[in-house]
Structures are given as structure tokens and as C-alpha cells.
Amino acid sequence: MPIDIAISPGKVSIPKPSGERLFFTALAATMFMAVVIGFGRTYYLRAFIPPPEFIKPATPLVHLHGLLFSAWIVLFMVQTSLVAAGRRDLHMKLGLTGLPIVLSMILVGTWAALRQVDRLAIPLDPLSWLAVPMLAVVGFGLLFLSALALLRKPAAHKRLMVLGMAAMIGAAFGRIPGMPFLLGAFLLPNIYTVALIAWDVAQTRRPYLSSVLGGLLLLFVTVGPLFIWKSPAWLATARWLHGLL
């Protein structure tokens, strides 16, 4: 493994980021931009720009969810930038703050999704729509915990981190002005699987197993709701979950 910072007498040289580091930083940057643009009108700037009519006033729970999600996307962007800059030491230290944020996101995200059933103002049955955030939370949690388990395998770790973030990014893509909602919320997140596999093949002539398996899970949690949300089995599950409140 090449040394990130080479020190010679009287001279310190910091090599330029590799192509792969720049690639993963670019992926993180697109996610960061999607969150800022997608949630700009509906959350971050709603005090200055009137949100769409179906967006109800934010509750303390919504603000908590927004705070955790915002903290995570900023941390994700910073972490990829640190790796690109060759500062793996800071990356590892700062990564310790990620676990409590993610665990809190899973708990608060689930709670917010269940509470949303009573707040939705869309034509679709709220219990059907519950499949979307619930599968997103499950996919995010499984991919992140898998990435954490593979911390000592950087190639798999960073691919699963990207796919885990993609599992949660559909809500941002679906809110981008001018973006067809179904395209943004359900299909567009899977472009990160395509990008990872294309990069793998270009670099090693074959995709990493983490890109393929993680991508399949991402496909299930993003597109899967379309196939299950009106089924009797899901509606019964959704009623039970909502009843826990």
C-alpha cells in the first residue's frame, strides 16, 4: 500500500488524490448536492420559500430527523474528502462519531415514518406509502452495518457506504424541482450501483462482490415498495407497525 505522505529531509510531499479517491468523492458530492437542492424548498429554506401544499408544518420529530440526516450527509462528505486528501488518520478518528448518528437515524427515521402515516396528504394510502421509508431505513441500516463489519476491507467498506447512503437519498432526488417523482425517488438512487460496477469493471475487469450484492439490496429497497405496498401482507404489517405507536 502506498504511503500517503512521504517525508524526506527538508521536504514534505503530499501526492495528488488517486482516480478512485476522486471518483468516490464525486459520488459523495452528488449526494450532498441532491440533499441541498431536494430539501432546500421543502425543509431548509421553507421559512423563505413556500413549500408545496402537501408539505405540512414540521414537528419537533421532523426537525430531529432533519438534524440527524443533515449531520450524516455532512459527515459522509467530509469523510470521503479526508480519504481523498490522504488523511486516513483523521478519517478513522472522525468515523467513531458516525455510529451513534446512524443508530439514531435508524430509530428516529423509523419513528418519523410511522408518525408520517397520520400526516400524509397524498392520494396514495398512507399505510401503502409507509413501505417506502421503512424499506429505506432497513436498507440503509443493513448496508451501513455491513460496511462497518468490513472496515478492514477498504474496497468493500467504501462501496457499501455509498450504497447505504443511496438507500436514503431517494427522498432528496424525488424532491428536486422538475424531477419526475417516481424517477427520482425509486429509480435514480440505483445509478450509484451502475456507477460503482462500471468503475469496478473499468479498473479490474470485474465488479466487486460488494457492489453487486449491495446493489441488489439497494434495488430491492428502492423499487420493492412498488410491488408490495398494496398487497394484503404489507398492509397488515403496516397496520401492526403503526399500531405500536
Rank of each mutant, 00 (worst) to 15 (best):
I197D: 05
P189V: 00
F76N: 00
Q79K: 03
D4Q: 14
M92G: 12
I37V: 15
I106E: 00
Y192E: 02
A71Q: 08
A26Y: 13
M161V: 09
V212F: 04
F54C: 00
F144C: 01
I49K: 08
L196A: 09
L145I: 05
R87N: 15
M92T: 14
G38A: 05
G224P: 13
I37Q: 01
M77T: 15
V108N: 02
G224W: 05
F32N: 06
V162M: 06
A58W: 14
P9I: 02
W199S: 09
L160N: 09
M105T: 05
L183F: 15
I14G: 07
G174K: 02
R206T: 08
G109Y: 05
L124E: 14
L114R: 01
R175M: 05
E20P: 06
W229N: 12
P123G: 10
A155L: 10
S211V: 11
T80N: 15
P50M: 06
K11W: 12
A195Y: 13
V78D: 01
V162G: 04
A233K: 09
P133S: 04
L64E: 00
G109D: 01
F181E: 11
I5K: 13
I37T: 09
E20K: 12
D4V: 12
R119C: 05
T193E: 00
A28M: 09
A149C: 06
G214I: 01
V36M: 14
G224L: 07
F144H: 14
A121F: 08
A198I: 06
A172M: 04
G224I: 11
I101D: 01
K93M: 07
Y44D: 08
L67K: 04
L151E: 03
P50L: 03
V83D: 04
I228N: 07
A167Y: 02
R46N: 13
F220P: 01
A84C: 13
T204H: 12
F140K: 00
T237Y: 09
M92K: 15
A149T: 00
A171R: 03
